[in-house]
Nucleic acid binder design. Sequence first.
DNA 1: TATAGAATTGACGTAAACGTAAAGGTGCAC
DNA 2: GTGCACCTTTACGTTTACGTCAATTCTATA
Lengths: 153, 153
Amino acid sequence: MKLVSPGEAAANTNDMSDKAGEDLVRIGEMAKKYGVTLRTLRFYEDKGLLNPQRDGSTRLYTRRDKARLKLILLGRKVGFSLRDVKQMMDLYDPTGSNTKQLRLALDKSEKQLARLQKQRALIDDAINELSNSMAAVRQMLSERSAPQASVAG
Amino acid sequence: MKLVSPGEAAANTNDMSDKAGEDLVRIGEMAKKYGVTLRTLRFYEDKGLLNPQRDGSTRLYTRRDKARLKLILLGRKVGFSLRDVKQMMDLYDPTGSNTKQLRLALDKSEKQLARLQKQRALIDDAINELSNSMAAVRQMLSERSAPQASVAG
DNA sequence: TATAGAATTGACGTAAACGTAAAGGTGCAC
DNA sequence: GTGCACCTTTACGTTTACGTCAATTCTATA
């Protein structure tokens, strides 16, 4: 089972091995393509989020894995835990309407949205407090360094 | 060295023991007063952020400790690490102008403010992405549950 | 065939701020 | 004299998403 060699991987777009257009990539290329580390990909697999094929011991990622990884990264971006992401993905059924999956996703999303909004409120609060403190500190510093100025002015 | 008993602690406001108005409190009252746990107070002490007196082995917090705790909690609120807080507090000198302390605080504050603003941007981004995804999911759900409606309409 | 590059598993390390026992002293109200 | 509330120290556990070796193997290429 010959595969894409690292060197020609970039140039190769239609050298199919077994199945048509399977476009299998190894972990290195996969990582580069999505800006994650090898460790991350193995970690996701360990957590049951990815399930690449194997050629012997070498992982081979299909376009299905790519789709899943995209979803994982989107989930992480909006603040879901990997556990949440897994829960949602585990409900995916290629033969059904996936209504349950969508409902769960929506439910989790609403909660996550609420969390994000609360977080934003906290941050705004912190920004305000910090700005106030900074103004006070600046005031103290100016009182300490500019008494001559007040005399000179 | 007799102290305020737990029961009368609340009612007692001017029963001074050794020094005038020292107003020593034990860890339980301190914790209640500032909404932290005992563990937290001991932890802060362990990290060198607090330095209560001792009556034997019992911690006694003075009004100086209260002031420091207030600062710690403010620092935490605006997102400083305890390490940062300690760095700033360690520069405090009751006999000097504390210019160095203030400058360090200001410097750290500027950086922290930048971090907070970046965080807020990330959160806003996440909120947008999440909202979009939710809209898409809602769309998919409606397409799955209301085809009759589209016929009926 | 020697070397370099890519891959594997395994397993400990990291960060922050505490939580949570465990096991035990001290004083006071009854 | 005992029960209860309060205090003490010590020390391991928690959380999450990986980082960072280490030791080894596989493959391609000059």
